[in-house]
């Protein structure tokens, strides 16, 4: 083969890969598709992953979960907790005991993405660290979750993007349910703005937010 034809071959290959990746991204990024609200399957046997953030996020998450009947029908729940967040672990224990769900006690430790008040520069570094640490914990799971449910702590961002990438690569097929915190009345949180594009359903708890964000759904206060 001449040098020219080798070059042509690689160029063609590059176009093919770029095209395939573009199509795959289009297919897998929820923003490009209409939200489906049809009932597809029952909760029975499904694997749920729930992110417990620090502070008020954890409290709100348990309030959200408390409104779901038949949680016990789920196949599994994997709880993601930031390392060092002992308060969330205590709250989790209380929740599991109160709801008779002690069988769902699988906890995954994630390193924390961004501390309140941290500078932008050091935020980027700690977010990267968090991403690598999350990647390691997630890849060691036996099976990937059907649904990832988050409600907006900083750690939600690397976790959601990690599953987007794994979905694009065909490793996982995890849907993302994002519920914005009740504290957000007129503006989404930074996590919310970053996860808006890649969440399969994006819920807010104040109606004003749906006018700015077309894909945001308001179904009343959920906590």
């Amino acid at each position: 083969m001449s040098q020219q034809s080798i070059l042509d071959f690689f160029l063609t290959l590059m176009f093919l890969i770029t095209g395939a990746l573009g199509l795959r991204l289009y297919q897998k990024i929820p923003y490009f598709h209409n939200v489906s609200i049809e009932r597809k399957r029952s909760l029975k046997g499904q694997n749920l992953m729930v992110l417990l953030g620090s502070g008020g996020h954890t409290g709100e998450m348990f309030r959200l979960l408390s409104s779901i009947s038949e949680l016990s029908e789920l196949g599994s729940i994997n709880w993601c907790v930031s390392s060092g967040d002992t308060t969330s672990v205590v709250q989790l224990d209380n929740f599991l005991k109160k709801t008779n769900l002690t069988k769902f006690n699988s906890v995954i430790q994630l390193s924390r993405a961004r501390k309140v008040g941290e500078s932008w520069g050091s935020s980027i570094i700690s977010t990267l660290k968090s991403f690598v640490s999350s990647l390691h914990s997630i890849l060691s799971l036996k099976s990937y979750p059907d649904v990832l449910m988050v409600n907006g702590p900083g750690t939600a961002v690397p976790l959601c993007y990690l599953f987007l990438i794994m979905n694009v690569l065909g490793i996982s097929n995890t849907k993302i349910l994002y519920v914005e915190s009740l504290a957000r009345v007129n503006q989404l949180s930074l996590s919310g703005r970053l996860c808006y594009w890649i969440s399969d359903r994006f819920l807010v708890q104040w109606p004003g937010l749906t006018t700015k964000y077309q894909r945001a759904e308001y179904h009343g206060i959920l906590v």
Binding site: I37, R39, K40, S67, I68, S69, G220
Partner: peptide, 17 residues
């Protein structure tokens, strides 16, 4: 009184995913 969340809003959404 603050209205309670509708019983199965989240459940229905989870089932649609």
């Amino acid at each position: 009184e603050l209205p309670l969340p509708k019983e199965d809003t989240l459940k229905t959404i989870l089932e649609s995913l």
